[in-house]
């Protein structure tokens, strides 16, 4: 019984599977199952947002005024680009071009960093105006009762999303290091694909967050 590390790029696979292909397809199914849970978790926030927006349109109208669509649009473009580079990263590994793949993965992480940088700018600007979440809110309400509720949503949704961006960056860095080390090849790239799928869901959530927060009044 092997006790050493399994070198999967040589086509080896864990003992409880019948083949490398079964291991690959099983792992992918596991990732899809996990991604479904992320949709449901974030989705709960979207549901609450729509319900409250229906109940208090004035709160959401006033709150949205403090968001700049320019930052939102730039961030959307940044994340879309990162999804492209993530997909290309896997594409190059599938073709055995590991150094090209590594470049794409690094760009993906950098895009994530740019995204977080812009978020930092946005958050700082809001804090400057006293637009803190919940009880800490000290900004202008413009006469709208319970305006802080809007910012609670804003920080909760972008905050949870931001945590996932950071997690994704960490995961991509991990697979990038492994790519540089030569762990992957056309016969085995499962972790890269799994991480990639996670990253795309992070992008997917932003695709909906952008119009929700920045564009719809």
């Amino acid at each position: 019984m092997s006790t050493g590390k399994i070198i999967r790029k040589d086509g080896h696979y864990a003992h409880h599977f019948e083949s490398a292909e079964q291991e690959y397809t099983s792992s992918k199914q596991g990732v899809w199952l996990f991604l479904s849970t992320e949709i449901l978790m974030f989705g709960g926030l979207f549901v609450a947002f729509f319900i409250y927006k229906g109940m208090y349109p004035e709160i959401f109208h006033k709150g949205a005024e403090s968001l700049s669509w320019v930052y939102g649009a730039i961030n959307t473009a940044v994340l879309l680009t990162s999804s492209l580079t993530m997909a290309l990263g896997i594409h190059y590994i599938q073709k055995g071009k590991n150094s090209a793949a590594l470049t794409q993965l690094i760009i993906t992480v950098l895009c994530g960093a740019i995204f977080m940088g812009i978020k930092y700018i946005e958050y700082s600007h809001k804090f400057h105006l006293g637009l803190y979440p919940g009880q800490m809110f000290s900004g202008e309400t413009g006469g709208v009762e319970n305006l802080p509720l809007y910012f609670s949503f804003y920080y909760m949704m972008t905050g949870l999303h931001g945590i996932h961006v950071l997690l994704g960056m960490g995961l991509i860095t991990w697979v990038a290091i492994r790519t540089a080390r030569g762990d992957f090849g056309p016969k085995y790239y499962t972790p890269v694909e799994g991480v990639g799928l996670f990253w795309h869901v992070v992008d997917l959530i932003w695709i909906y967050l952008f119009p929700l927060l920045y564009l719809v009044e």
Partner: peptide, 9 residues
């Protein structure tokens, strides 16, 4: 699997 997430949401 992915569609179910959206459906139940």
């Amino acid at each position: 699997i992915m569609a179910s997430g959206f459906f139940f949401l």
